[in-house]
Amino acid sequence: MSLVIAAVGFGFASAAVLCLAALGFTLQAGITNVVNLAYGTNLTVGAFGALVGETVFHLDIWLAMLLGALIMGFVSVFLNRAVIDPFIRRGTRHFQMMLVTFALSIVLEYVVVLIWGENFYSYTGVPSGVLNIGPMSFTSSQLLIMGIAALLLLVMHTMLRYTKLGKALRAMADDKELARGCGVNVSRMTDITWFLSGALAGLAGVSLAMTTSSFSEILGSNYLLVVVAAAVLGGAGEPYGAMLGGLIVGVVTEVSTVWIPNEYSDVIALALLVVFCLFRPEGIISGRVQRSEEL
């Protein structure tokens, strides 16, 4: 039993990363209606952005993390303006659009390889030290990441729920034309959404890189489908769902390692994804009436 509780602890740690990533994924999926296969490499770019901060600018790891997030935020706006939005405007849809993002992910990943090679890296300034809470044990960086994630999710929640900007973003995800009719500046909001989602991906990427011993160019692309699993579980395009999905997928995969080998823990997340695609593509919470009141 204590094994399970310990695994739940690990689950919270990985859920923290996953919630950030899934929220970013779902924000852009909500307004573009595109499954962005390049999103995984966004995490990679964020992680390497922080590496630049640490090695080139000699930043503290947390400032480097911020730099990684900012870089990825701007890269994300650029990618949308330069590639994704033009394709959407032209009327490219569904599978072809997915292929566009597939191509984009290949390009991004190998730009990273071009600069950094296929080598393994790790940050130097990751704080060590372990804290035990009952049978759960956390490294101090895990705790800090969980803190950052919790804080950010709270900020995002407040923003989406109570501010005019947040309501406009959600309205746009629902119906872009109607939002335009209400006077929403759709192109600016689109930029903001892509920036936020890119920055969240960047943060998640740095956090992911910090919690693994070393990372390489495949950091994010290997993680992509787990993120998609969390987002689909929560109902694609649903910000709160993504947070919940991240929590569920994170905890379930870690707890599953009590019984099945570690290497297969991703398989659990992916199996969940397939099951949800097949039987409940609208996600867990969609359809529940009072959801928005509860949150």
Binding site: F87, I106, V107
Partner: peptide, 17 residues
């Protein structure tokens, strides 16, 4: 190899466009 993959990706994007 990296340049090759970048080229393949860009070529695919160019054709899709």
């Amino acid at each position: 190899p990296a340049l090759r993959w970048i080229l393949i990706g860009l070529l695919a994007l160019a054709f899709l466009w």
